[in-house]
Amino acid sequence: MGPIVDKKASIISFQNVSKIYPNGVQGLKDLNIDIKQGEFVIVVGLSGAGKSTMLRAINRLHEITSGDIQIDGKSITKAKGKELRLIRRDIGMIFQSFNLVKRSTVLRNVLSGRVAYHSTLKTMFGLFPKEDKQLAYEALQRVNLAEKVYTRADELSGGQQQRVSIARALTQEPKIILADEPVASLDPVTTEKVMDDLLRINHELGITIVVNLHSVDLARQYGTRIIGLRDGEVVFDGPVAKATDETLRGIYGEKILEEPKPEGVTV
Rank of each mutant, 00 (worst) to 15 (best):
F125A: 14
K242I: 00
L55K: 04
I11A: 02
Q221W: 05
T191G: 15
E131F: 00
K193W: 00
G38Q: 07
A184E: 10
Y150R: 07
V43Q: 06
K80I: 01
N144V: 00
I12W: 01
H203P: 05
Y150M: 09
V106K: 03
D30C: 04
G126H: 07
E181L: 01
K175H: 03
D197K: 04
A57Y: 02
F236C: 13
L199R: 15
D245I: 05
L186I: 00
I20Y: 14
D180G: 11
K148F: 02
T65N: 14
G24M: 11
H62V: 11
V164R: 04
G250C: 08
Q37K: 15
P188D: 10
G264D: 13
K29M: 06
K51E: 04
E155G: 09
S47I: 01
K148Q: 12
E204A: 11
G50I: 02
L100N: 08
R103V: 00
F98A: 05
A49G: 11
V41L: 06
K36L: 04
A116T: 09
R220C: 12
G27V: 09
E192I: 00
I226F: 02
E63Y: 04
P182G: 09
E259S: 11
L213V: 11
V41H: 01
I207A: 12
T151C: 13
V143R: 03
D245H: 15
D180R: 05
P239L: 09
V41N: 04
I69F: 06
A153I: 00
S75H: 06
D196V: 00
D187Y: 12
I91A: 08
Q96N: 03
E181C: 05
V189N: 12
H203Y: 08
S104K: 14
F125T: 09
A136R: 05
M1K: 10
A179D: 07
V164W: 01
A219Q: 12
V17G: 13
T190Q: 11
P22M: 06
K133S: 03
A219E: 13
P262S: 13
V189G: 02
I69W: 04
R230A: 08
G159T: 00
V149T: 10
I20Q: 13
D30H: 01
I35H: 01
E233M: 14
L248Q: 10
D231E: 15
E263Y: 11
V267G: 14
R89M: 13
E192V: 00
N99W: 08
S75I: 01
L205I: 06
G45R: 02
L156D: 02
V234Q: 04
I226N: 03
K7D: 10
L199Y: 03
P260N: 11
K102W: 05
R225H: 08
E263V: 07
V143H: 10
